[in-house]
Design a protein around this nucleic acid. Structure first.
Lengths: 346, 346
DNA sequence: CTGTTAGCGCCTTCAC
DNA sequence: GTGAAGGCGCTAACAG
């Protein structure tokens, strides 16, 4: 029915072992023999049986990339970068790796499920992007799962997520706290004192760190915290949170959003309320997604080098770049001051 | 070293076959036995070996989703929808399927590579999203690959892509032509006569169909085609193409973009040129991505039911929804008239 | 309902 | 540089 390696061997008049060797290219084979085999492969339209190969070799060419929300460019950009470093030749059989992205939807349960599925497939590596849920139960389950994955030979790289102790996982973390602090400092420097904050979902590392940075800046300046509202990382959340913030404190002069997408929703709500940006209310985001420079006014935000971080994570996962000292590296964000923030109205 | 099914069997004092049966849940097993096995699985922290299972069963729980650009929400939304319908229970072993998305970057070569990789893994199904490259050579290679995949038992669903003959693949196509026509008709109705067009990359079905719709509308109205420029589906392309269009025809009163992202770039270029939207130049996009309603002015566009289409593709791929008659269904777009289009200046 | 018996297709020592 | 043989871990008939 389907063509097997034995069929190729027969046609090329060599042993199955030889065919395997040319396919994997990790063993000396005479040039003429190799050519004969390759021709047979072509003629028979042979496709290696991945499961069989993985079973015998006790490892596969699958590399998993976990993202919280595949519809969000924040993750799409990182995932694409990881893939671009992995997809190339260099795998075991046929020289290609299967880089696949798995959408957890931000659910810690699905995150674990995907890790199990990947473990089941004996994935060669796993890259986990974005913030983590901070529930202690989940954290423990996660640490255990990562440890077992690592013990089974899967390389693990965290990209945009803080390290998990005792797992051997390599972490490239974003400096969300520092970025959040600089952003709020910028607003304080402009003269803002009543700054509303739209935070991400609770119990997420990203949310907490950005918020802490915000609070650090306020504290350092001796300014009281104004209203803070939590919500998911989407446009609608920004819209609704802003209406809530305006209700809680009609006199606020600035709004900091958990990320650019949320900031977009905030802008919409402000406009609907008849408030001008930045004349009446300044708005700031986080991440610097591609659209942020195009909205009107262009968004003040913190740029995270998403692509570079993803690419680096991919290379580390492939063993093509040395892991950072201490298995951990903090990536800084850059404050991008644009038209959406200005001095407060007097 | 690693725990195998035999270990579980020994601990539960049953045969390996029985363990397999409870794990796959597709065979009657006494409740008490099942419980004993499950407990052993838990105690030993056993994880099924996917490759071995796939090899023995000659099929896997892997489902592939191909996208042209994972950083583009157009694909992210569809991919997320497909996954949400696939990820759930219902798979063979352990009741979970591994839904994975593969980023082709719009390259026909990588598209074929990924299909081979998926074929190698004996994927249960493959969903291919977005437009296809129209190069005849690639089309032929693609048709052959799809046919072989189908013969090997992989279900294939095209989502947002026209059908490929003689492959058995099911197609859910978007009515890009109709949408393009309605969009241009809308501008013509408003009184526009000099309409610049920013098309997507050449030799893509999506590009061609949308452009054809545009031309259909012009022709029906007896209006000559104004300047048309091609470019990738990104913001920068829209920006540069608009500068080019303005150079070619400074008197145009409207610009139709290949999609919303391109339209964003077009808006930026217009503003930079000191032109107001829509007073001086109207702008229209395509897709109705989430941000399109938030930009200022809100974008007139054609809404494509991306999520619904993806979800349906996922269900069909899982055999949970009947395939459309003739293995093909055309999904219409809906014209969304918003602030970015208005009567031309007189 | 459960155990026994063969493989699934490939990789990998070991000989030659 | 190449062939032969055993086994990777699981599933799917068969028996019982």
């Amino acid at each position: 029915m389907t063509v097997t390696l034995a069929d190729v061997a027969a046609r090329a008049q060599v042993s199955p072992a030889t065919v395997s060797r040319v396919l994997n290219g990790n063993y000396p084979v005479a040039a003429t023999t190799r050519e004969r085999v390759l021709r047979a492969v072509d003629e028979l339209d042979y496709v290696l049986n991945g499961p069989a190969s993985a079973l015998a070799a006790a490892t596969s060419d699958l590399v998993g990339i976990l993202v919280n929300d595949i519809a969000d460019p924040f993750f799409g950009i990182m995932a694409g970068a990881v893939q671009s470093e992995i997809g190339g030749p260099g795998g075991r059989a046929g020289g290609e790796r299967l880089a696949v992205v798995c959408n957890t939807g931000g659910s810690s349960e699905r995150e674990l499920t995907y890790l199990t599925l990947l473990q089941r497939q004996r994935a060669a590596a796993v890259v986990i992007t974005g913030g983590a849920v901070e529930d202690p139960l989940h954290a423990e389950a996660m640490a255990g799962k990562l440890r077992r994955l690592g013990e089974a030979g899967t390389r693990i790289v965290l990209c945009g997520r803080p390290p998990v102790q005792d797992t051997g996982a390599i972490a490239l973390a974003f400096d969300n706290r520092g970025g959040g602090r600089r952003l709020t400092e910028h607003l304080l420097d402009l003269g803002h004192r009543r700054i509303g904050y739209i935070a991400g979902p609770e119990e997420r590392t990203t949310t907490r760190h950005r918020l802490e940075g915000h609070r650090d800046a306020l504290k350092a300046a001796g300014v009281d915290e104004c209203a803070t509202v939590h919500g998911p990382y989407d446009r609608r959340s920004g819209y609704e949170a802003t209406r809530e913030l305006l209700r809680q404190d009609p006199d606020l002069t600035a709004i900091v959003a958990a990320n650019d997408t949320v900031a977009l929703g905030a802008c919409a709500a402000l406009r609907e309320a008849g408030l001008r940006i930045p004349e009446d209310v300044s708005v700031a985001g986080f991440d610097d997604l591609p659209f942020s420079v195009d909205v009107v006014p262009a968004l003040t935000t913190v740029r995270l080098p998403l692509y570079e971080a993803g690419a680096r994570a991919g290379r580390i996962a492939m063993g093509r770049e040395a892991e950072p000292p201490g298995k951990m590296s903090v990536i800084a964000g850059e404050l991008m001051v644009r038209g959406s923030t200005a001095r407060p109205r007097t």
